[in-house]
C-alpha cells in the first residue's frame, strides 16, 4: 500500500452563511489520477484551492507530502513573454539553474506540442495554447502532486489530447499524483483511476470508474427519443414511465430510464407511452455511464 501524498480528513469550509465544503475526506497516492466531478458550486474549486494551499479551510485535517503544482482556472501568464521565457523564469524561481530551467522548458514545450510556438509572445497564442502553457507552468518544478482545475474546459479535441497524454505520462511515467476537476463524464471515465462525485460540498461517492459503474450492475439504460414532443406531453410520459422506472428523467428531447431487463421492459414502455398518446422516434438501450451514476446519487443531472 503506497503512502498517500495527499490526505484530507473531514475538511470543512464556509463563506459566510454559505457552506462550500462539508466533511470532505480523500487521499491520493503517487501515480494515481483522481477526478473530482460535480456541478458548478459543488465545492470542487474550493477543495482544489485548499489542497494547493492558496485557500484556507475551517475544519478538518490536511496533509500534503509532496511539492504541489497547481493550475487554477483562468490565464495566469505574461502576455509580453514567450512560453519559453516564462517557463525558464518560473523554473529559476523554483531554484533551477538557468541551464536546467531551459532544458525543462524545452521538455515541457515538446510534451505539450508548443515547441514551434515556444518563442512567440504569449499574447499571440490561441486560447488552447495558453491553457497548455498554464499546465506547463504548473509542472516546471516536477511536482509530486498536480492539482488541476478543469484543465480541458473549452479545449478542442486536439488540445485535449495533448493534455490527456501529458497527464498519462506524468502519472504512469513519473508517478505524479494528480487531482483534477472536470465537468466531462467521458473524460473522467477515460482518465481517472478513481472518480470522486461531489455535490453540495460533499463527496457522495469515490471509487474506480468500473466500480462506480458496477453499482447495480444488473441494470440497463433505455433512451427514448421523443422527437419534437412538447414539454407537457413529455412530462406526462415521464410520469407514466415512473410507475415502473422511478428514475425516469428528461434529457433534452429524450427520456432516459433505468430498468432491470431491457427486453421485458420494452412492452411496459410502449404501453406507458401509448397511454399518453405518444410514440417515440427511436428507442435505444445503452450501457450505464458515469453520468447515470451521478444522477442516481444526486437525483439530478450535472447541468441542472
Amino acid at each position: 500500500m503506497r503512502t498517500p501524498v495527499l490526505s484530507a480528513e473531514g475538511l470543512g469550509r464556509s463563506f459566510g452563511a454559505r457552506t462550500a465544503l462539508v466533511e470532505v475526506s480523500l487521499a491520493v497516492v503517487p501515480g494515481e489520477l483522481l477526478v473530482l466531478i460535480g456541478p458548478n458550486g459543488a465545492g470542487k474549486t474550493t477543495l482544489l484551492e485548499i489542497v494547493a494551499g492558496v485557500a484556507s479551510f475551517g475544519s478538518g485535517r490536511l496533509k500534503v507530502s509532496a511539492a504541489i503544482g497547481f493550475c487554477p482556472q483562468g490565464s495566469l501568464h505574461w502576455a509580453d513573454l514567450s512560453p519559453r521565457e516564462q517557463l525558464i523564469f518560473l523554473g529559476q524561481l523554483y531554484g533551477l539553474s538557468r541551464r536546467a530551467a531551459a532544458l525543462r522548458a524545452e521538455e515541457l514545450l515538446t510534451a505539450l506540442g508548443l515547441l514551434s510556438h515556444g518563442d512567440e509572445l504569449a499574447a499571440t497564442l490561441s486560447g488552447g495554447m495558453i491553457r497548455r502553457l498554464n499546465l506547463a507552468s504548473g509542472l516546471v518544478h516536477r511536482p509530486g502532486l498536480l492539482v488541476l482545475d478543469e484543465p480541458t474546459a473549452g479545449l478542442d479535441p486536439e488540445n485535449k489530447r495533448f493534455v490527456h497524454e501529458l497527464l498519462r505520462a506524468e502519472t504512469k511515467g513519473r508517478g505524479t499524483a494528480v487531482l483534477l476537476s472536470t465537468h466531462d463524464f467521458a473524460e473522467a471515465q477515460l482518465l481517472a483511476d478513481r472518480v470522486a462525485i461531489m455535490d453540495q460540498g460533499r463527496i457522495v461517492a469515490c471509487d474506480a470508474p468500473a466500480a462506480l459503474l458496477g453499482r447495480r450492475s444488473s441494470r440497463a439504460m433505455i433512451e427514448l427519443d421523443l422527437g419534437g414532443a412538447d414539454a407537457g406531453l413529455r412530462d406526462r410520459a415521464r410520469a407514466a414511465l415512473s410507475d415502473f422506472a422511478p428514475s425516469a428523467r428528461s434529457e433534452g428531447d429524450a427520456i432516459v430510464l433505468e430498468v432491470m431487463d431491457v427486453t421485458s421492459a420494452l412492452g411496459r414502455v410502449a404501453a406507458a407511452l401509448e397511454s399518453v398518446g405518444l410514440s417515440p422516434r427511436a428507442i435505444r438501450s445503452r450501457a450505464r455511464s458515469l453520468e447515470d451514476v451521478f444522477v442516481e446519487l444526486t437525483g439530478r443531472r450535472l447541468t441542472e
Binding site: 494547493a52 490565464s75 495566469l76 505574461w78 523554483y94 507552468s137
Partner: peptide, 15 residues
C-alpha cells in the same frame, strides 16, 4: 501583473 493574473502564478511559487 495583477491584471493579467501573472501575480497569481507568482503566488504559487516560492517567490
Amino acid at each position: 501583473e495583477v491584471e493579467s493574473g501573472a501575480l497569481r502564478r507568482l503566488r504559487l511559487t516560492p517567490l
